[in-house]
């Protein structure tokens, strides 16, 4: 079965980021819908489920998948830049990422299957602001900065300030996500990724936890956590962070971690799991994170 409704959408391939911003601004001012197509792994599925029904309603598609400004990974000192159109497979293959931020390839390996990893991008993962986004969980644990651009200029936002609600964010209709910066964890840091789904591949997370910690003289000096599918947005677990940061590791009790985790999550029942199961797994993952950290 082909998808003839796809022919209702126009497609443009702007040759620079500037022209993408101009096109978005013009169209947003007229109230017209525009979609940026990166890997297409979310957009094509949405069109398969809900095809456009008439040409005037069909959103215009701007292909941003090959814009040089959105592509590439580069390190400068301890700062890592990841362009929004970077794919999971590129994250898996990058030597600096593998050496300094192994959390990212570990997460990427668990996204869909290799066919999805070869196309899906981090920018596309954030854009939909879904709490089930694995890439965003990892970016949350890394306390990444999100970079946005529009005709009004660039702005940078801490990822913890990005979400305003379920599938909602501070990003305006005319803004492009250009990329992310991350302060790479130091040598000897602890990085953790564990995804719990129905099976290892092609499963959206029931719960997943990304974590980053640095410990100095037995004290937690850096702590980042991002939990997936346990709240209306990616969960940053602020209570757990506050409990453990700058604390001696051996004085962080499991019972306190459990209470903090439960205060930070508000999971629901849905097609993939139940709220009860998610609460149980949330606690278990946070405990496992600290148990592994302590035993290093």
């Amino acid at each position: 079965m082909s998808l003839p409704e796809l022919s209702l959408h126009g497609l443009e391939r702007p040759d620079s980021l500037g022209s993408v911003c101009e096109r978005l601004a013009e169209r947003a001012a007229r109230g017209e819908k525009t979609v940026l197509l990166a890997g297409g792994t979310d957009w094509f599925v949405e069109r398969h489920v809900a095809p456009a029904t008439d040409g005037s309603e069909a959103e215009l598609v701007l292909d941003v998948s090959r814009l040089p400004e959105l592509r590439g990974i580069s390190a400068s000192g301890d700062t890592l830049w990841i362009g929004a159109a970077t794919t999971y497979l590129e994250l898996r293959r990058h030597p600096v990422v593998a050496a300094r931020v192994p959390l990212l390839p570990a997460m990427s390996k668990d996204v869909g299957a290799v066919q999805i990893q070869a196309r899906g991008t981090l920018g596309g993962n954030l854009a939909t602001a879904s709490p089930a986004a694995d890439g965003v969980g990892a970016l949350a644990a890394l306390d990444a900065t999100v970079h946005l651009l529009s005709v009004r200029g660039p702005r940078s936002i801490a990822i913890s300030d990005y979400f305003t609600g379920y599938k909602r964010s501070v990003r305006a209709a005319d803004e492009v996500i250009t990329g992310f910066t991350v302060q790479m964890p130091g040598e000897g840091s602890f990085q953790y990724w564990r995804k719990v789904g129905t099976r290892l591949a092609q499963a959206i997370s029931k719960v997943a936890l990304a974590g980053v910690a640095e410990v100095s003289d037995g004290q937690v000096t850096r702590l980042g956590l991002g939990m997936v599918s346990v709240a209306p947005t990616t969960a940053f677990l602020p209570t757990v962070r506050a409990l453990a940061l700058r604390r001696p590791l051996d004085r962080i009790a499991d019972s306190a971690l459990d209470a903090a985790t439960q205060a930070d999550v508000s999971p629901i029942d849905d097609v993939r799991s139940t709220g009860d199961y998610r609460r149980h797994v949330s606690g278990a993952l946070v405990r496992e994170f600290f148990r592994t950290l302590r035993s290093r």
Partner: peptide, 20 residues
């Protein structure tokens, strides 16, 4: 599944225009 520049992708999720 087909190879696009050597990597496996799902051809049901790729726009023909993206293959230029």
């Amino acid at each position: 599944t087909v190879l696009l520049d050597g990597d496996p992708v799902n051809a049901c999720l790729v726009a023909t225009a993206q293959c230029e």
